[in-house]
Write a protein that binds this DNA or RNA. Sequence first.
DNA 1: GTATGTGACTTGCATTAAGCAAGTGACTAA
DNA 2: TTAGTCACTTGCTTAATGCAAGTCACATAC
Lengths: 129, 129
Amino acid sequence: MKKANENPDCPEGYRSMCPIANVLDIVGDKWTLLVVRDLLMLSKRRYGEFQNSPEAIPTNILADRLKRLEATGLVKKEFYQDNPPRAEYFLTRKGADLGPILKAMGHWGKQYIPGVVLPKTFLSPEIRE
Amino acid sequence: MKKANENPDCPEGYRSMCPIANVLDIVGDKWTLLVVRDLLMLSKRRYGEFQNSPEAIPTNILADRLKRLEATGLVKKEFYQDNPPRAEYFLTRKGADLGPILKAMGHWGKQYIPGVVLPKTFLSPEIRE
DNA sequence: GTATGTGACTTGCATTAAGCAAGTGACTAA
DNA sequence: TTAGTCACTTGCTTAATGCAAGTCACATAC
């Protein structure tokens, strides 16, 4: 997602010292925040549940995003059986704290995009780790 | 950015009826919101000013994003001379209302990404149209 | 036991977007 | 005359997205 970075006046892998730029390096794409939405607002936990969301995320992208979310510490993966391996995904506190960003997006969307509806109000998701 | 759309139970070009999904179709990439940040928080107006931001946006992407922002009604382009053509870009109300999303990102970033600093606090940008 | 199904992925390949460097046109200042 | 600036555009390479299909380890139905 990120690359070497040759801007000398900021740390390894940072585009700049701006928090917004750095947040966009984590969630700045069309799919990542939809997975977070599923976890946070729709209480989804399993691969198949994410697949069933109406946006129909391609399976390879879903697998990739879950990996990245885990790598950046926004999501915790927990196996509930070994054979065949089956896991559930939970938001960490760090991941759940993206809530205000999603809320702001939901609010803007309802104001400016005709016809949209928020699927449910926020439930209290289980936080792990 | 978007494509035909074959999900039959939502309008032309919508991935779903979720406001978050639709917002992500407009600002779900690594650059669009940085241009909005420049307009909203740093009071930039001109092409060259956007280029000078520390993230060093490639010029072709900047040109593309300014076009899209104008096309979606988030930004208004105003020429201040004809020859050679020179323009300034201003946020519309719709564009300025992305502020809360940027604020939420800034807040999350400051909390979870070490070392980052918000360049300035919000100024009151000029709104057009 | 064979056949079908399910959940959670991976792989291959085509399309689209991002990123880099260089070029262009119309000036302006030295 | 020459160099420089501003606002872009063009060409090309690399990376990300998107689609379809395949895999693996079971569970259930017959």
